[in-house]
Amino acid sequence: MKKLINNPRTVVEEAVSGIAAAHPGLLEVHTDPIFIVRADAPKQGKVGLVSGGGSGHEPLHGGFVGYGMLDAAVPGAVFTSPTPDPILAATQAVNGGAGVLHIVKNYTGDVLNFETAADLASAEDIEVRSVIVNDDVAVKDSLYTAGRRGVAGTVLVEKIAGAAAERGDDLDAVTAVAEKVNANVRSMGVALTAPIVPHAGVPSFDIGEDEIEIGIGIHGEPGRERIPMEPADAIVDRMLGPILEDLPFSDGDRVLLFVNGMGGTPLVELYIAFRHAAEVLTGRGITVDRTLIGNYVTSLEMQGFSITVLKLDDELTELWDAPVQTAALRWGR
């Protein structure tokens, strides 16, 4: 194993310190307990948005803290949910009197710990709502979930709900927008290699040089099937078919197409995958209205990618286009 680290036990703390040093004026880092918060929080009268989860998926979630997106992010240890204490501290830090929305990926530890933090915040008269993101169509249950996993669609929930909060929507409205995105977004991923968790020092699972795992989770959870390596277009077809059938998406729909790298996949390969996915959608009479391509929800150095499709309407398109300024996503400001 070769990794650019100093000590496996201090990876998260040192990485978060680096985020703070790289983006002064945009965000601040608290270390005891650890969380990342936008520099101007709390914004009085604005709904606060908090998300978080295990580290190793960067830029999710800390890279999405800032204007038009998250107010705070709570990093856990690598691939491990943060505990309730830092989630509560982040919730307190962004409370501007209009309530706080927790955006939670559907993993058992995340759900339970955010739920506990929400209960503790409610005892302090902070109104908290939660939206559980479960966009992964690959499997119904996994090693870490009851129900579908929350994966790359989380970025779209955070961006669109963040825009609604930034324009002044109340807690009910922001929650409804987040739920609307979650109801209309579907994802699936594929792994070519396994990630290596720093403190473990070995790959998270064994996969042959000529094999791929279709439907993998962002922590390396098993997917639908393990098959011999195929050309990129064939892999895209295997992933996109179940996505389009699940909602379902149909002729006349307008969508946002998001091709996400898992950390070790070159951008040139992501564009090859995007090209064919866009061709398939267009061939079905589905208009690709908005796009996102890059490494946004990673799995350390895993080679692989995911495809996410969000059905758009005028409201969701307007909120997606709204200005955003974070470390990892920024436009219009």
Rank of each mutant, 00 (worst) to 15 (best):
I5S: 06
V12C: 11
E14F: 08
I19V: 14
E28Q: 15
V29N: 09
V29R: 12
S55Q: 07
P59R: 09
P59N: 14
G63M: 07
V65W: 03
M69P: 08
M69T: 07
D71L: 05
I87G: 06
A93C: 10
G99M: 11
I103K: 06
K105E: 08
K105A: 13
E115N: 14
D119F: 06
R129I: 01
V133W: 05
D135R: 04
V139T: 15
V139D: 03
S142F: 08
T145C: 11
T154A: 13
L156D: 04
D170A: 01
A173F: 00
V177D: 00
V177Y: 01
E179W: 01
N182H: 05
V185R: 03
G189I: 05
P195I: 15
P195E: 12
P198M: 09
P203Y: 12
D206C: 04
E209G: 15
D210T: 15
E213K: 07
I214P: 06
G217N: 08
I218H: 08
I218Q: 07
P222T: 12
E225W: 03
M229T: 07
D233T: 08
V236H: 01
D237F: 02
D237L: 02
D251S: 14
G252L: 05
R254Q: 14
L257Y: 06
N260Q: 10
T265C: 09
I272K: 00
I272E: 00
A278S: 15
V297K: 00
L310I: 05
K311Q: 14
D313H: 05
W320K: 03
P323Q: 09
V324Y: 01
Q325V: 11
L329Q: 06
G332D: 14
R333N: 09
